[in-house]
Design a protein around this nucleic acid. Structure first.
Lengths: 214, 214, 214, 214
DNA sequence: GATGAATGAGATTTCATTCAT
DNA sequence: AATGAATGAAATCTCATTCAT
């Protein structure tokens, strides 16, 4: 009987506690915002404070993990969408990202303010966005003067709508996404013509990170 | 010189302090979020704690006033835009509302979560939106299947973009607004057809208020 | 026209303000206890804070004056009672002292905790008590083993009853006083016999003063 | 040794802290009055502020508990006295209640201002008073025209004396109680005759509760 | 390893007192 | 002399984090 063998049950307990804490945190933060107390989280998870702090050395670490898993799921769905080759991957991705943000995960407000540590994952995400945007443009689904930062802004835009409407109309954001997509389509007629406002530069978009508010 | 005249200097001081407190609060809350401490606000304003609490009996009252003035300015610019009759009022209004939200006022996150007390002002605002939307549609600037709640969502969307980008690119939201407007234009060609997602109902939009979080 | 002439109107104003402040203080302290704020007192008096502080340099001074006037009235009524020579002066005095304490003056709790400054007045008061007690005893109205500190305690006792009952039964203390007096009468029969508990000594009674609580 | 057994040590600590806090509160409030700060209480108890607030969510709760335990002891001693059948129970009870109030518990001033929550306990207390009074009257120890509210007033009266004298003469109240009891004895001779002042009604006595001040 | 009590710095709020007008 | 705004020390209370059991 190896040590590993002996520890395994504990690890399972630990993993379970960890999961329960994350669920509890999502619930508490979704209800009360990130000001919700860690004590509420521990109580909701049914564990003691010590256990919480064993798993997550600070409240920030708990939040980070919450955001981290959200971000991993985001990357996951981006990768899924990336497999499409018919030019619809981008739209699929946006739809799914909308759903993801609409879930009451308690930390969406931090999703797009990644720290440097998460830079790599976000870089891959942006790369997928870029590729899928190009593909959509090749297929004529998106106007050619749209750039990848426009898509990023579109995701931030969804967040704004979702945060505002979630409590009373959890699906209202879909309508907004539809309009956003309409805005990305190739145009003809009276309002044709390239976008005149300068897009957000990649460099600046990469600098969106960390602390700052309102 | 009347007694009233004689008393004014004091009042002027008080009014000045009040203004300084509001400015300080905007600064502090813009930098640190609404978690910023009132002590910081008082220090930034160069007054004592007691003075702050003489003007604003609670921190919430201070925030409320901050939001209130933002909301009054919003209504003001809406009224201005309402004077246009060439169908461009709505676009003008959106542009100006974007600028307003882009200012570092420290409380934009609360702008659209009005309490019942502010219902009246917001009702007028929505009425103006409605009229200007109709006008824009008559002039063929906006597709006919857009409804007023789409415009509301558009403003919430701007908030999301602005909050995310303000620190590194204070004007990036303009590009986003341009795309949003493109999404509102009448369409023809491959992607023509009415919007299929159901719009947010007026009733639900009116219920967006008060507390709730991510 | 002398300076005194010129100042007189002002002094009248000042005296008026003083009186209003004392009345206001009595009202406020009676309603809220001595924790009532000086701001409430000033507002109730219809004067500014500065005026209050011109008349009374500290809150304590205001309270002291309130207690002081109560104490002066107490002495006054004692002197009145002292004019009786039929042995009823003491009872008259107690009755009137009860009425005095029953008035909502806002500071009865401090009446018997005089500072050294008021020692003189209280000494005279005690002297009157002593004389009237002797007279009452000579007339056979009060048992001979009663001493003057018993009368003092009786007054403190009235305070306790009055403070407790005033709000719901402003005259209940009279019944209590009647019982107290019955306890002072000469006794015969089954329960005759001198009081066995040692009385409070004059020396200690004189030391009852200033700060201390429960 | 059960889990419960194992957990007890923690609980024991907590209970100890609780007891220390109550003792400290009694001390601090006895010295400084109820205006004494909770910080002083925590320091005196040798615990942090957080600990105090874990045990007692507000200062009021701390005071309430202090008064509550005083009231429980009062009820306890009343029950003890209620076992006497020789008519001396009432006097015993009053003596003990005097001793109880004379202890420096820091909250005697609130003992008789019970909230509605404590109504039940006080009702039982009054019932015991009533029974013991009847018994004492049957045994000829107390005059027949005394009613139960007279006894209540007598207790309030003791409070007044004790609060005033405690600091310099902690036992002076006994002398006062002796006089009070003398006032309750059956009378004959010159001052015989029923009490003429109307007693405090039970209904009003029951309404003595909660807030009010001098 | 888990528990939850303890900690104490810091937040908001009050109020006696001072001071500019 | 009167006003009431300003002051800031102190009070109550909260909560992320630590630690004894």
């Amino acid at each position: 009987m190896s040590t590993t063998e002996l520890l395994k049950p504990l690890r399972r307990d630990a993993a379970e506690n960890r999961a329960r804490l994350l669920d509890a945190a999502a619930l508490v933060f979704a209800e009360q915002g990130l000001d919700g107390s860690v004590e509420d989280v521990a109580r909701e998870a049914g564990v003691g404070m010590g256990t919480l702090y064993r798993r997550f050395p600070t409240k920030q670490a708990l939040i980070d993990e919450l955001v981290g898993s959200l971000r991993r799921e985001l990357l996951e769905l981006a990768r899924d969408a990336a497999e499409r080759t018919d030019g619809t991957g981008l739209e699929e991705l946006l739809l799914r990202a909308g759903h993801l943000q609409a879930e009451p995960r308690g930390c969406v407000e931090r999703l797009w303010r990644h720290s440097d540590a998460e830079l790599e994952a976000m870089t891959e995400f942006r790369q997928i966005l870029r590729e899928q945007l190009a593909s959509a443009q090749e297929h004529g689904r998106i106007r050619p003067d749209v750039v990848v930062t426009d898509i990023s802004m579109l995701l931030w835009s969804l967040r704004g709508v979702i945060e505002t409407t979630r409590a009373v109309a959890p699906n209202a954001w879909r309508r907004h996404l539809e309009i956003l997509l309409a805005g990305l389509r190739p145009v003809s007629g009276r309002f044709a013509g390239d976008l005149v406002e300068r897009p957000l530069s990649d460099a600046r978009a990469r600098r969106i990170t960390g602390r700052d508010t309102d």
